[in-house]
């Protein structure tokens, strides 16, 4: 009798004790928790490594080159290129308007490419006898030093530092550094982007000025990678030569170039240090190029930058 009455009571007590014993029921179980999505970055993008800033020795006027000479003597660099049958040119295949691969045709096009083809035409009688080697900004000087390329025509600023390692032709285009931002940005200058990420290419003259203005530089291999990180929202602006920025603005109407030019960037064609004959030869080609082709090429690619200015006058060291 007692057993029958007590047992259910005991069981009820035990059950209740079980329910209440642990108190806290814990959190619902989340099988997959992701708190932040990782945005993709272009290959090799990152913060620049600090470089020891050795001030370049003063070389006088960096735009002064060697006097032109169109003679091709036996054994000269030009004769060797003729023997080979084609010119090897270091170019950019990613910078719209200056040097890029037209995805619709697969052909290389742009202002720098026109200059390159003019040199090939003069030397070999055919503007198509060029082997294009795509280079990143940082690869330009090493490629010339190693003799991998005959010339580099790739938005290359003539500086005293670079004159140490390579030769330059006479100036064929004058650019200036400016800033590209999203169309809705209120920034007017690099200083307005203090503390924010700004993109520039590795090994370019532009990247040093970002940190000088208080911005955080993000360096990439190619200029078009800068447009990618701007579109992906990883930088607030891109700073480099207005000629390159114009190509980005042309590809994305939601961007704009702001502020005045805050530097002058004379473009020259890079040539290996030892090939002075080639420098003189290229300068003679450029003299012809400035005649009429320069304006035609400018009109074809750079008309968005305004009416064609006069081509920069060549300067020589002597």
């Amino acid at each position: 009798m007692r057993l029958r009455t007590i047992l259910p009571a005991v069981l009820a007590v035990l059950t209740l004790a079980g329910i209440t014993a642990c108190g806290d029921v814990g959190q619902p179980v989340d099988l997959a928790r992701v708190n932040e999505a990782q945005r993709p970055l272009p290959q090799n993008a990152g913060e620049p490594e600090p470089v020891d800033d050795e001030p370049a020795p003063d070389c006088g006027d960096p735009t002064a080159s060697l006097r032109p000479n169109s003679d091709i003597s036996a054994g000269s660099t030009m004769a060797k290129i003729r023997e080979r049958g084609y010119l090897i040119a270091g170019i950019d295949q990613n910078t719209y308007l200056f040097g890029f691969r037209n995805p619709n045709t697969g052909q290389m096009e742009g202002f720098d490419i026109d200059v390159t083809r003019a040199i090939a035409n003069a030397l070999l009688g055919d503007p198509n006898k060029v082997q294009f080697r795509a280079l990143t900004s940082a690869q330009r000087v090493p490629a010339l030093q190693d003799g991998d390329v005959d010339i580099v025509a790739r938005t290359m600023t003539m500086t005293c530092g670079r004159w140490q390692d390579i030769n330059f032709s006479s100036e064929y285009y004058t650019a200036g550094q400016r800033l590209l931002v999203n169309a809705n940005s209120r920034a007017e200058s690099l200083e307005d982007l203090r503390g924010r990420n700004v993109c520039s290419a590795k090994g370019s003259t532009s990247i040093d000025r970002i940190a000088e203005a208080g911005g955080k530089p993000l360096q990439v291999d190619n200029w078009s990678d800068c447009l990618v990180v701007l579109q992906q929202g990883q930088v607030a602006g891109v700073t480099t030569d207005d000629s390159i920025l114009a190509g980005m603005a042309a590809q994305d109407p939601n961007t704009k170039i702001v502020g005045p030019r805050f530097s002058t960037e004379p473009y020259g064609i890079g040539i290996p240090k030892e090939n002075e004959d080639m420098v003189r030869y290229v300068n003679s080609v450029l003299d012809d190029f400035r005649g009429g082709e320069w304006a035609r090429s400018y009109g074809r690619w750079l008309s968005e930058l305004g009416a064609p200015p006069r081509p920069p006058a060549p300067k020589y060291q002597d």
Partner: peptide, 16 residues
């Protein structure tokens, strides 16, 4: 971008 003829397409492809 490729269909528009812009080299930004190549940049996105490289990133991908």
């Amino acid at each position: 971008y490729n269909r528009q003829g812009f080299p930004a397409g190549a940049a996105y492809l490289r990133e991908a």
